[in-house]
Design a protein around this nucleic acid. Sequence first.
DNA 1: GAGATGGTAGACGGAGCTGTCTGTAGAATC
DNA 2: GATTCTACAGACAGCTCCGTCTACCATCTC
Lengths: 192, 192
Amino acid sequence: MPAQRTPAGSARDRILETAFRLFYAHGPRGVGVDTVIAESGVAKATLYKHFPRKDDLVLAYLDRVDQAWFGALRAAARDAGDEPRDQLVGMFDALAGACRRDGYHGCAFINTAAESPAGGAVHARTVEHKTVVRAWVTELARQAGAADPELLARQLTLLLDGGLAGGVLDGDPVIAEAARRSARTLVDAALR
Amino acid sequence: MPAQRTPAGSARDRILETAFRLFYAHGPRGVGVDTVIAESGVAKATLYKHFPRKDDLVLAYLDRVDQAWFGALRAAARDAGDEPRDQLVGMFDALAGACRRDGYHGCAFINTAAESPAGGAVHARTVEHKTVVRAWVTELARQAGAADPELLARQLTLLLDGGLAGGVLDGDPVIAEAARRSARTLVDAALR
DNA sequence: GAGATGGTAGACGGAGCTGTCTGTAGAATC
DNA sequence: GATTCTACAGACAGCTCCGTCTACCATCTC
């Protein structure tokens, strides 16, 4: 290609960065397009060129969250060592990290799903995220030698969801610690 | 008082019943006051007489959910027998019941908290609900003889939250079953 | 120079939102 | 009969929201 794609993508990036911050803090429905425009210092036409519908921006926001959160989850698992059974517990360090982060406001997917019509693309994307994460945990559980990897994955993602979702009420890091201990108990019981 | 309070409270009840249904399905922010008025067959002035602000209606909605959910939780625990350790597991039958219910849409408190400004009365009410429930579970854990009732209660309410909150994405009753099994494992481990 | 590209600035329409207000009507109470 | 209470019906103001549109500008390429 002769002309390189976007010179810097600076406008698009500013929009996404601003949307990420505002959508996470107040929920997509709680933030008007005009606010995103004002805070990102971009023209309205520019925003609508990159994201023809507000939902397109919401989807891009969810993709960004997915990258960040799923990435943190895998990194935490990796940091726990080579043993899958340790990784299943270690991934909960990502939850602890999230709880401690300033402006922590729970699970972006559950929060967004709660306000999205059931049939729409936005809701579907939130479900897709949870499915992908659970599949990854299931594979880890299989590698660890769990008799019923599906069940163990369900149990652990349930804990993750509970810890994350509850963050919208109370971001106490003690929650993450309780979740981690539960994970240890459940993993030990499943691999006995 | 000579004049009995409300002759039947029928208008107020219709408003509350309608708000309960619509708020739970779409979130308070997703339902306009006009819609509540139209669907409950009530005059606008009547609604604003009973609930001067929309937030007052939201608070009444949360109270209603609290009664229903906390009631179901205690009933499920009671049905599990007299032993506190069985009650700690049995309360998860309430989660299974919720999952199977038509129009199940996750945890009303988490969903509402996600869209409510952090400092407000609505957000505070959601936190209060979770606190009350956890206190009740803590007392149950203490009666069961847990070494660390606070921790066990955290762990179990985490499971409850995860199961409930995840319902906005996927109301599969298999979730409730996984939560129940986790609860059994955690309770057994804590009371060993 | 002509045109394409990507950006800024902001008006505008049509819709929906909350909350107020005026006016009417039935029923109970004094 | 007069008053009070409760409810119905609906117009209205003021705001926000989404998305479209016109106009202008800078840069780069042909």
